[in-house]
Structures are given as C-alpha cells and as structure tokens.
Lab assay of single mutants.
Amino acid sequence: MKMAVISEHLGLSWAELARELQFSVEDINRIRVENPNSLLEQSVALLNLWVIREGQNANMENLYTALQSIDRGEIVNMLE
C-alpha cells in the first residue's frame, strides 16, 4: 500500500531515487525502455526491482532515508 503511494508521488524523481538506491545507469535506462509512456509505471518498476534486489533488507526505513536524501521528504511525511 505504501509503495503505491510512493509510486504515485515520485513523478520525475523516480530516476533520482534509483540512483540513490544504487541502481546503475543501465538499470534506469532499462526501466525507461520497458515502461516508456508512464512515470507511474517507471516508479512501480523501480520499487519492484528494489524489493527483489534487497529481499529481506527492503524495508521502509531504508526507502524513507533514500527519499529524504533526494529532498522528497514530503512523501515520507504523507505516510507517517
């Protein structure tokens, strides 16, 4: 549920979040190519990849820290 809210509000910031979460330029470009027409779909794809990559370590605290690092703390505030 929280992931959906984050995806809805990320907009163009999804790529900046991807870099903050240590995704490569290739990963970011692949997300763009696979989801060409929708920032929402790109955001969802990023968060899904992050959960798959991090497994047990994919917790909201880590995601909140990354969001705050890219000056998107207002998204965190909405969810708390």
Rank of each mutant, 00 (worst) to 15 (best):
D71A: 08
N62S: 11
Q22G: 11
D71Y: 06
N37G: 09
L67M: 11
A45M: 09
S69E: 12
M60P: 08
L49D: 09
N48M: 04
A66Y: 04
S7N: 07
R30T: 08
L10E: 00
V51D: 10
E20G: 04
R53M: 04
N77Y: 08
E26P: 06
I6S: 11
N77P: 07
L40T: 11
E80A: 11
R53S: 03
L49C: 11
V25N: 15
S38L: 02
L39M: 11
L10C: 00
G11Q: 07
L10W: 01
L79H: 09
S69N: 11
S7T: 08
A15N: 07
T65F: 11
W14S: 01
S43P: 02
S69R: 13
M3A: 05
V5W: 14
E54V: 05
Y64P: 02
A15I: 15
L79G: 06
N48I: 00
D71R: 13
V51M: 14
S24H: 05
V5D: 03
D27Q: 11
D27V: 11
L47Y: 00
L12C: 15
A45I: 05
E80N: 12
P36E: 12
K2T: 08
E20L: 05
F23G: 01
N29E: 12
A4V: 06
L47F: 02
L49V: 06
W14L: 04
M3H: 08
M3W: 07
R53E: 04
I6V: 15
I70R: 05
H9R: 06
R72A: 03
G11F: 04
E54C: 09
R19G: 08
L67E: 02
E61D: 11
L67I: 09
Y64N: 15
L49P: 02
S38D: 12
V44E: 12
L39R: 04
Q22P: 04
L10M: 02
N29I: 10
W14A: 02
W50V: 00
V5F: 15
M60L: 07
M3F: 15
N37Y: 06
G55R: 06
M1T: 14
G55E: 07
L17C: 02
A45S: 13
R32S: 10
N59G: 10
W14H: 01
L12F: 12
M60R: 03
N62L: 12
N37A: 13
A15Q: 09
K2H: 07
Q56T: 15
D71G: 15
V44Q: 15
Q22F: 11
P36M: 12
S69I: 12
E54A: 04
D27G: 04
Q68T: 08
A18H: 01
Q68R: 12
F23D: 03
D27A: 11
S43F: 00
G11L: 05
M3C: 06
N48Q: 08
R19Q: 12
N57K: 10
L47I: 08
L63R: 00
E8Y: 02
N57S: 09
M78R: 14
V33T: 15
Q56S: 11
L79K: 05
Q56M: 12
Q22V: 04
W14E: 02
S24R: 08
A66H: 10
N29Q: 12
E54N: 12
E26F: 06
V33N: 11
N35E: 14
G11R: 05
A15M: 12
A18K: 01
L12I: 15
T65D: 13
I70T: 03
I31K: 00
N59M: 14
V51K: 15
Q42A: 07
I28D: 04
N48G: 08
A4W: 05
N59D: 15
R53F: 00
L46S: 01
I70M: 03
E16F: 08
L46V: 09
E26L: 10
L39F: 12
Q22M: 13
Q42M: 09
M60V: 15
W50F: 03
R19H: 14
S43V: 02
W14M: 05
L10F: 03
S69H: 15
G11E: 15
I70A: 02
Q68G: 10
M60S: 07
E16A: 12
E8K: 14
L49G: 11
L67R: 02
W50I: 01
K2N: 11
F23W: 00
S24Q: 09
V76P: 08
L63Q: 11
Y64Q: 03
A58L: 15
V33I: 13
E41A: 11
E8G: 07
G55C: 06
R30Y: 07
E80C: 11
N59V: 11
S24L: 02
V51R: 14
N59W: 06
E41M: 07
V5T: 07
E20R: 10
N35R: 12
